[in-house]
Design a protein around this nucleic acid. Structure first.
Length: 516
RNA sequence: GGUGGGUUCGUCUAACGGUUAGGACUCAAGAUUUUCAUUCUUGCAAUAGGGGUUCGAUUCCCCUACCCACUACCA
């Protein structure tokens, strides 16, 4: 089998949606498993919808996820513009390839597979509205093309005149009449469509001298020797056209195979996942934070504290499963296990709770030293006076209670700042006369410990409490109140061991003084 | 409206003619614990509906319903 070559071909019209990341991921996994190439191509043939920064955002997103292109993007994350050994098909931006498409469109005309169409956008809109008022749909196809203004109906002279002088004509594909098009999808199996349901799609526009998606896509996939097209379900309706196009070019023997992925659906209600759902339900729909030209901010998985590995893992299992009960996969494991025939046909609702769970699993799998580095990177100024090993010890005792590194400060601030206030409910519950008389005694016992680690601290506390038949919970929570100011956190012995003997004594004395 | 795709616990999914329909997330209960959390145990919860085919259908076929996509000189 030839080397597999797949591509991800986004349109730079905005930030990349997590569904788009999933499409890129599946392409990448497929390619890497087969030892093939993953290619990036920028489909910017719509000059109207171009959004500055979107292309960079898309590439940065993929790189963050560990989806590294083999071709189309260089080491610096830039889309390649000039051919080289590694990037032989440059440029990879369709706007920079505009010169190559017209001749392919004209080749189709020469062979009778396409024609020039001179109808203005306004005329067509009028026809559509007219049809709509009669509860019909206007379609530019075998039924109507004979009565419209195109090179099939106009004289040769008039056509030549219009081609030369008009600037608004297009080239349309001439869909053959009454043909059953038999197609195959790697995920969905065999599909048949009658060509009469199709319309004569515009392939090329004189106005901006740019191809439409359909032409550019087929030409570039062929030129770039793409072997599998793995794309979103929204493209399934145009698959018959694409088959016809490959046939018209005479490329059907080498055309790629297709796989159409189902869409990501919103967590509740109807429809596909959209930016609004994220805002409404409080989770990101984009991999990275994005600020649009209005200044509106869309949160990103990265900025929300998700690990890229967790994010990739979440996406991988949304519409694919390994057939085993394994749920946690590294990128390498995904590459090993992935297969298109285990991709689910139906749409997958995104579940934010499960996403959090995945991140928690990734968080817990990290070493305390790694967590400490991340914690310091996030809260640098607050942690400036503390050593790496101190922070690592804190991370070790709080990691079980967090989903995100971004929660660490809220969960551990008392390790770095002594409590200024004491939770009144906890005070009322535990700071009673019969309990607090023991606190100074315990303070002195702990102060006397020579090997100051959590085990010996724990032993001293237990020996005293049990030896005097005191209530464990009340004593421990009183001590916790002194150290934390509240009633939560790891075991008292762990806290004492981390903050150290001097700090322990200081905090206990402070509490005794302030609480009386 | 037309065309195409889809339909298993609330959600992600497994079971590719024979299982008490399995797992995970969420939720609930219990156990452990010095609090919170963790951990452990248990529980709740599904084959859209109707016809076939078959000894036997979640699985194959048909119909209906519902959902999704497409129906642009956008991708």
């Amino acid at each position: 089998m030839n080397k597999r070559r797949v591509r991800f071909a986004p349109s730079p019209t905005g930030p990349l949606h997590m569904g788009g990341v999933r499409t890129a991921l599946y392409n990448y996994l497929y390619a890497k498993q087969a030892g093939g190439d993953f290619i990036i191509r920028i489909e910017d043939t719509d000059s109207q919808r171009f959004v500055p920064g979107a292309e960079e955002y898309i590439i940065e997103s993929l790189l963050w996820c560990g989806i590294i292109p083999d071709e189309g993007v260089d080491e610096n994350g830039k889309v390649v513009e000039t051919p080289s050994e590694r990037h032989p098909h440059a440029p990879y931006r369709q706007s920079q390839r505009k010169g190559i498409y017209r001749k392919y469109a004209e080749q189709l005309i020469a062979n009778g597979y396409a024609y020039y169409a001179f109808d203005s956008a306004e005329e067509l809109t009028a026809l559509r509205q007219e049809a709509e008022s009669k509860k019909e749909t206007f379609t530019y196809n075998y039924k109507t093309r004979e009565s419209l203004k195109n090179s099939l109906t106009l004289s040769k002279e008039e056509c030549e005149e219009r081609i030369a002088n008009d600037s608004n004509w297009t080239i349309r594909f001439k869909v053959p009449e009454n043909r059953v098009i038999k197609m195959h999808d790697l995920i969905r199996g065999d599909i048949e469509v009658n060509s009469n349901t199709l319309d004569d799609k515009v392939l090329w526009k004189r106005a901006d001298e740019l191809p439409t998606y359909h032409l550019a896509n087929i030409v570039d996939d062929h030129l770039m020797e793409i072997t599998e097209v793995i794309r979103g379900e929204e493209w399934l309706p145009s698959l018959p056209l694409h088959y016809l196009l490959y046939e018209a070019f005479g490329w059907q023997d080498v055309q790629p195979q297709f796989a159409h992925l189902s869409l990501l659906l919103k967590p509740d209600g109807k429809g596909k996942l959209s930016k609004r759902d994220g805002d409404r339900l409080g989770f990101p729909v984009f991999p990275l934070k994005w600020v649009n030209d209005q200044g509106e901010v869309s949160r990103g998985y990265r900025e929300d504290g998700y690990y890229s590995g967790a994010f990739v893992n979440i996406l991988a299992l949304l519409g694919w499963n390994p057939g085993t009960e394994q749920e946690i996969f590294s990128m390498d494991q995904l590459i090993d296990s992935f297969s298109l025939d285990r991709v689910v046909k139906s749409g997958a609702r995104f579940n934010p709770d499960k996403a959090k769970w995945f991140n928690k699993e990734y968080l817990r799998a990290q070493s305390k030293e790694d967590l400490a580095k991340q914690f310091r990177a996030l809260e640098g100024e607050k942690l400036a006076n503390f050593s790496d090993s101190y922070i690592a010890d804190v991370c070790e005792v709080i990691r079980e209670r967090a989903h995100f590194i971004t929660e660490f400060w809220a969960l551990s601030s008392y390790f770095f700042v002594a409590p200024q206030e004491y939770d009144s409910a906890v005070v009322a519950k535990f700071w009673k006369d019969e309990i607090k008389v023991h606190i100074p005694i315990i303070r002195d016992l702990v102060k006397a410990i020579e090997v100051f680690d959590n085990q010996s601290i724990d032993k001293v506390l237990h020996d005293y409490i049990l030896g005097n038949s005191l209530p464990m919970g009340k004593i421990m929570n009183s001590l916790r109140l002194c150290l934390v100011g509240a009633s939560n956190g790891p075991s008292v012995a762990d806290i004492v061991a981390i903050i150290g003997k001097d700090e322990f004594v200081t905090r206990v004395d402070n509490a005794i003084e302030k609480l009386q």
